[in-house]
Design a protein around this nucleic acid. Structure first.
Lengths: 217, 217
DNA sequence: TGCATCTTTGCATACCATGCAACTTATGTC
DNA sequence: GACATAAGTTGCATGGTATGCAAAGATGCA
C-alpha cells in the first residue's frame, strides 16, 4: 500500500500513462473522424487504425462504439461527486451541481478544438447526445448519491439511507442537471458564434432555478 | 385530399390495422420476454418468433432492437404535440406539458400489466431508460416545436408549422419534461407499493415548478 | 377478375461485441 | 541485469445487429 494519490495527468507508472494515452487517442480519433465523415460512417476499425491499435483493443477500452464519441474523460464523474459533496454550505443543491459541472466543463473546454468538434458531432447525431457527458448512467447515479450525501450532511433529510437508493429529489436533480448539460451543448453547437458555451450553461440553470416560467417578453 | 381523420385505434383499412397489430405484437413480445429473461438476453429472433413474423420484418418496424422495449405507442408524440398547442391559455408552458404527458401516461397505464412490466424492464436496464418514453429523440423535438408554437401562438399567428429551430427555452422545457417522465418511472418502479405512478409524476413537476429548492425538512 | 401498390420475407453482406488463448510488455525482486 | 509475475495487446472464432435487394404474398380498387 503506497500513499500515492494519482489524480490527473502524468501520474502513475508507464503502464498507467500508456493506458491513458491510448484511451485519449481512441477518443480523439473517434471525434475527429466523426466530425469529418459523420458518426454513422465511422467504423471501429477506422478508429482503431487511426489510434494505432487493434480492433480488439478498442473494445478493451469502450463497451460500445458510441462510447468513444461521448466519453472524453472517464474520471469526471468521481471529481464531480467530490465537488458536490464539498461545495460551500451556502449553495443550494442545484447551485452545487451547477458549479461542479461548470468546473468540469470549463476544463474540457480548454481543449477548445476537440470540444467544439465533439459538440458538432453530438449535434449532428442526436442519439449520441442521449448519452452525452453526464448522461452516462453511472455518472448520473453518482451525482444522485452525491446530492443525497450533501443533503444528509447539511442536516436535511432528502435522501434515504446511507448506502441505499437515493430518493426522488436527488435522482431528479441529477437527471435534470445532466439534461441541462446536453441541452446546453445542443443549443450552443447550433449557435456557436452568438454566445460562449458556459454562458448558455448558466442561463439554463437560471431558468431551472426560476421554475421554468414562461418567458415574459 | 380526402377528409379522413384516421386518428386512433380501429381506423383505416385492413392494411393499417394489420400494421398496427404487428407493431403492437412486437412491442408486447419484446417487453414480456425482457421482463422474464432480462432485456440483454432477448434476441431479435426471439421477439420476432413470439410475434409471428420474420426477423427482417422486425427491422421494418424498429430501427433498433432496443426501440422495441421503449416505443409502445408510435403516435403518442403527435398527440402530445396537439395537446400542448391546444391546451387552455391559462396554463404555463410547463403545466401544458405536464397535462399533455399526464393524459398520455394515464392512457398507457390502462394496460396496467404491460405498463408495469415495462417499468420493471427499464428499471433493470438503465441504458434503456435513457431512451425512455419521451426520450425518443423525435418526440422530444416535436415537443420543443410544440412549446415554441404555443409561445408564438399566444398572439394567434396561424399557418407556420414547426418553424425553424426552437430556441433554448422550448428545447430545455421539452428535455426536462422528458427526463421527468423517466425519473418518475424509475423512482416508481422501485417503490411500486408506496405511491401511484401519476402521483409521483405530478410531484416531480411540482418540484420543477418550484425551481428545485432544497427540501426544507 | 385483374392490375397497381404495399408488405413480408429470404438471402447476402457488413459491422458490432465478447470469450478465449497466445503473445508481448511493464513491474518488482533477487 | 535476469527472473517470475501481473497486466495489456492481439488474432481468431462466434453470434447478434442492421441494411439493401429482389422475389413472393396481401391488399385496395376499378
Amino acid at each position: 500500500m503506497q500513499l500515492m494519490s494519482e489524480k490527473s495527468a502524468a501520474e502513475g507508472g508507464l503502464r498507467e500513462r500508456k493506458k491513458r494515452a491510448t484511451r485519449a487517442a481512441l477518443a480523439e480519433a473517434a471525434v475527429r473522424l466523426a466530425a469529418e465523415h459523420g458518426a454513422e460512417k465511422v467504423t471501429v476499425e477506422a478508429i482503431s487504425a487511426a489510434a494505432g491499435v487493434s480492433v480488439r483493443t478498442f473494445f478493451n477500452y469502450f463497451d460500445t462504439r458510441d462510447d468513444a464519441f461521448v466519453v472524453i474523460d472517464a474520471e469526471a464523474g468521481a471529481r464531480m461527486r467530490r465537488a458536490v459533496v464539498e461545495a460551500p454550505a451556502g449553495l443550494s443543491p442545484l447551485e452545487a451541481l451547477r458549479e461542479a459541472m461548470a468546473a468540469e466543463l470549463a476544463e474540457a473546454e480548454q481543449q477548445h478544438e476537440l470540444w467544439r468538434l465533439q459538440a458538432e458531432v453530438l449535434h449532428a447525431s442526436p442519439h449520441l447526445l442521449a448519452r452525452g457527458v453526464g448522461a452516462h448512467r453511472a455518472a448520473e447515479e453518482d451525482l444522485a448519491d452525491a446530492v443525497a450525501e450533501r443533503l444528509r450532511g447539511a442536516g436535511g433529510t432528502g435522501g434515504s439511507g446511507p448506502g441505499s437508493e437515493p430518493g426522488l429529489y436527488p435522482r431528479l436533480l441529477a437527471a435534470v442537471a445532466s439534461v441541462a448539460v446536453r441541452t446546453s451543448m445542443d443549443h450552443w453547437s447550433a449557435h456557436q458564434e452568438e454566445a460562449a458555451f458556459l454562458d448558455v450553461f448558466r442561463e439554463v440553470f437560471t431558468l431551472l432555478a426560476a421554475g421554468l416560467p414562461a418567458p415574459s417578453a
